[in-house]
């Protein structure tokens, strides 16, 4: 179900000196909505995601977090301008979550799977070992990892399992908005398919809003409700996924869609 607006970029611009990371990017995401950001390498997808997820200060423009006030209105607050650093960090580890392309960036490799999943819960104040462990076990089951691997370190996991563990860790405190940076990158095709299935199921089950960066249009078609196409730091086209994939308007989108092998 698509719900209240959660997140908005307004005129986001990030310059690296004279070079353009992304320019005048605007978009909005509502609760339960999956938005794919597609484009070739160097098109500014990762810059956009870093700024949007609170990890890099944009040169100009707003990254707005929407909260619903008691009377039902949406209150917008810029995460860099209106939130203090403690508030922003708290937002990043409670209501928002981030899934890295390389699971090693998102996991603590020297800590067991249970500790990895439990970290956000403990950061949020959980102090009962038994409860944390039960919850971690439940999450492991939800991402289809055998629960007897709870005390194993991620170093002993395969790439696909690590990625699923990373997703469990990100979702353990019930975030509303998840940023994903090429979550299926570097996995083989069958593992990719299983992971996408899992993400699609979790998104529906927990009513998650997702901003997913990918260069793989198949991923976008499977997961996303809407998508934006980026080229040279600008959003050149945005709309419903089916609409863009079946009837691309911008020449670059047309090129992108036509470059997929047709079966």
């Amino acid at each position: 179900m698509i719900g209240a607006p959660l997140f908005k970029l307004s005129g986001l611009t990030k310059l690296y000196g004279a070079r353009v990371g992304c320019r005048h990017a605007s978009l909005e995401v509502r609760a339960g909505e999956v938005l794919a950001v597609v484009g070739e390498s160097g098109s500014g997808k990762s810059t956009l995601l870093s700024c949007a997820s609170g990890q890099m200060l944009p040169t100009s423009g707003g990254v707005l977090h929407g909260a619903t006030s008691p009377d039902g209105r949406t209150v917008w607050r810029d995460i860099y301008q209106d939130l203090s650093e403690p508030e922003r960090r708290k937002l990043l580890r409670s209501e928002w979550a981030y899934v890295h392309q390389d699971a090693r960036d998102g996991l603590r490799m020297s800590v067991s799977a249970g500790g990895n999943i439990g970290e956000r819960m403990m950061a949020a104040g959980a102090r009962r070992y038994g409860a944390i462990r039960r919850e971690a076990e439940a999450w492991l089951a939800r991402v289809e990892i055998p629960t007897d691997r709870l005390d194993d370190r991620p170093t002993a996991f395969s790439g696909g399992m690590r990625q699923r563990l990373q997703i469990a860790r990100a979702l353990a405190t019930g975030p509303k908005l998840v940023f994903m940076d090429e979550p299926t990158g570097g996995l083989d095709v069958s593992v990719q398919a299983r992971l996408l299935d899992l993400v699609r199921r979790l998104v529906a089950e927990y009513d998650l809003a997702v901003i997913i960066v990918t260069h793989d249009l198949a991923v976008a078609r499977l997961l996303a409700h809407r998508m934006v196409v980026m080229k040279q730091g600008r959003i050149v086209e945005s709309g419903l996924t089916d609409q863009i994939l079946d009837d691309p308007l911008h020449p670059y989108s047309q090129l992108l869609v036509s470059s997929i092998l047709q079966t």
């Binding site: 800590v111 249970g114 500790g115 403990m122 950061a123 070992y129 944390i132």
Partner: peptide
């Protein structure tokens, strides 16, 4: 929170 991860 990290300190408790160590104890966990």
């Amino acid at each position: 929170g990290l300190m408790h991860v160590k104890l966990y």
